[in-house]
């Protein structure tokens, strides 16, 4: 008996064998007497049929055992599936925990880095307060409580600061001769149509030189300081000093 065959195949082949032998026996029994088998052959065939039947019964017993094993296996499978679900559930929870921990670790590292940074370059509170005073002294954050129309102290940029910005620089791009008129136009737009007075003829150049337009549009440098450091200082002084704003604003 080939042991590699499944029990089902063995049972089916045994049934085939029994069917074949039974058919053979019936055919032999209805055959004419001349073609009938000898008694010995007949007995042999009968023995074979009996042996096959016994083997079938034995294999069925084996099938019964296997059915019991199968039942146990089904129980095991159910338990394995159950454990699988538990494991998946636990893994999902661990993954969530890892996510939360990773985020908080990242934030903590950022905080540590900023702590280290602040320890390397400590700033005293005195300096901070001094700086805050300096910012608010120019009324750059809010207008003073006693502000009245015409008061030059206000929290929006001064004319000079505007000229330092992008729009102010754009007007410097064309030829120098056209600059004052362009600036005047720009000024007119920003101040609501009020024409710029003649005093507002100072042009700020990126080079840091202050020019004054004279007559036919020629500009004359009145401040020869070209160094950036000085210019910066100048701007700072001008911006912090509220009285340095143009006269058009005060109107």
């Amino acid at each position: 008996m080939a042991s590699h065959l499944s029990t089902k195949d063995r049972l089916l082949s045994l049934i085939d064998d029994i069917e074949l032998i039974a058919k053979e026996m019936i055919e032999v029994s209805i055959a004419p007497k001349s073609q009938k088998l000898s008694a010995a052959d007949h007995a042999q065939l009968t023995d074979l049929l009996l042996a096959k039947d016994a083997e079938l019964k034995k294999t069925l017993e084996l099938a019964e055992e296997q059915a019991k094993i199968q039942q146990k296996m089904n129980e095991l499978k159910a338990e394995v599936d159950n454990k699988d679900q538990d494991i998946h559930h636990l893994q999902r929870q661990l993954k969530d925990a890892e996510q939360i921990l990773a985020t908080s670790l990242y934030q903590a590292r950022q905080k540590l880095a900023s702590i280290v940074k602040s320890r390397k370059r400590p700033v005293s509170s005195e300096d901070l307060i001094k700086f805050a005073h300096r910012i608010s002294a120019s009324n750059a954050v809010s207008a003073p409580l006693s502000w009245q129309p015409g008061d030059p102290r206000r929290p929006y940029p001064t004319d000079l600061e505007m000229r330092l910005g992008m729009i102010g620089r754009l007007s410097d791009l064309p030829v120098n001769g056209h600059t004052p008129s362009t600036l005047n136009e720009l000024h007119r737009i920003t101040t609501g149509g009020v024409p710029a007075p003649t005093t507002n003829q100072f042009t700020w150049h990126p080079s840091g030189e202050l020019h004054m337009s004279v007559g036919g549009g020629n500009s004359v440098a009145i401040d020869g300081r070209g160094k950036d450091a000085h210019t910066q200082e100048d701007v700072e002084v001008m911006s912090t000093d509220s009285s340095s704003s143009s006269s058009s604003d005060s109107q």
């Binding site: 590699h4 499944s6 029990t7 089902k8 089916l12 296997q66 059915a67 019991k68 199968q70 039942q71």
Partner: peptide, 14 residues
């Protein structure tokens, strides 16, 4: 026989 459970393998394999 085709409906019997657990006989798709022989006993050793099972």
């Amino acid at each position: 026989i085709k409906r019997l459970p657990g006989i798709d393998y022989n006993k050793q394999d099972q």
